[in-house]
Design a protein around this nucleic acid. Structure first.
Lengths: 195, 195
DNA sequence: TCCATTATTGATTGATCAGTCCACAATCTC
DNA sequence: GAGATTGTGGACTGATCAATCAATAATGGA
């Protein structure tokens, strides 16, 4: 048809994710974005419409990647170890204290005020809850977890816990503390009656 | 000495807390603030120096109030009920979905970039952890909690959990879900051996 | 009563922001 | 290779922002 884009769309979005994760939506200036993305201003507006359009794509892509990372973590080892790994994956903590979470960040920044962001976060949240719940069911079937547990409720708890861990990590907590916190909150999942 | 202020300082700060909690620091404009606080622009700068100075006072006052609320909740009933109440107090959830938490909000917005905010949040966090830990110790002594628990580590877990509950509440969760989440995460505190 | 001091008010300033305009470059179809 | 189409780059615009200034009002001390 016509002249093709000179930049890779997904790579540009990935770079924008870093900027948004660091500064949030409002405080991420378009000048910061185009510089970090390595594209021109008009390219940003041509490809994504406006700053909000870019953010929606960034949030979507970030949530997808995050869910995939957690899915991989959930697929290994015992139920407790897998869930612990899924809780901690991608938290960054000491390595890159600047990196935040686009999901938590957008919830704090927008609350429930933006319908499109609501939809993205609701969908991503449900997917995470479902992934946790499935692993909890497997843990119950394997005899590791208490059969009285409601897997969906536990899934919601684990999502909330992960949000809290992200806040704690961004607040500067060490990885060992995050791990201890995760373990303590999961303490009640283990089968009590024993065999 | 000279002309006295026409406004009550604490009341003005309380009103600014609402604005900051709703919009965050950066997105709260000074025009919004002076309108909500019911004072003139120069009064704001005269009394608080600048927007950041006002925010620091607001964060300090907010943390104090929050800690006091939690302390009152912790002083009643059984250990589990008291901690549950302390976890849920002031979350707002359905009643006022717009209201956010200045502590979590500032951690997400500033990460570790502002020394004064670091100090305020660190101090407030330690105080909350200590309050939780003390209640956990009492619960252990009362035979309600597992004596093997590390009260300080549990305190850190409960603070992280409360942060996660705040994110979840701001994301639109119902109060019943928050309560279930709190209960599930506390499930591992109960004494296991039984008597 | 007068003066020093501080609060208040409204206009203003310089900077920064998201988004647009316009000229130009690169690609495809024919 | 000509023309239609689309991407790119830099200058630009109107709005909004935090913060300041200058003038006025209100208080306490002498």
């Amino acid at each position: 048809m016509a002249r093709p884009s000179e930049f890779d769309r997904n790579e540009a979005i990935d770079r924008s994710i870093k900027v948004f994760a660091r500064h949030g939506f409002e405080a991420a200036s378009t000048s910061d974005l185009i510089e970090s993305m390595g594209i021109g201003r008009q390219s940003l507006y041509g490809a994504f419409g406006d700053k909000r359009g870019l953010f929606l794509e960034a949030l979507h892509r970030y949530s997808d990647g995050s869910l995939q990372q957690m899915g991989e973590a959930l697929a290994t080892g015992t139920a407790v170890d897998a869930i612990e790994a899924a809780l901690l994956v991608g938290l960054g903590s000491s390595r890159d204290i600047e990196t935040g979470c686009l999901g938590v960040g957008s919830i704090i920044e927008f609350s429930r005020q933006d319908e499109d962001i609501n939809a993205l976060n609701d969908q991503a949240g449900e997917a995470v809850i479902a992934a946790f719940a499935e692993r909890v069911r497997a843990g119950i079937n394997a005899g590791e977890f208490d059969p009285d547990l409601d897997p969906d409720a536990v899934g919601r708890m684990l999502l909330a816990l992960r949000s809290g861990l992200k806040v704690t990590a961004r607040g500067g907590a060490k990885e060992a503390e995050l791990r201890t916190t995760a373990r303590l909150a999961m303490r009640g999942l283990a089968r009590v009656g024993a065999s």
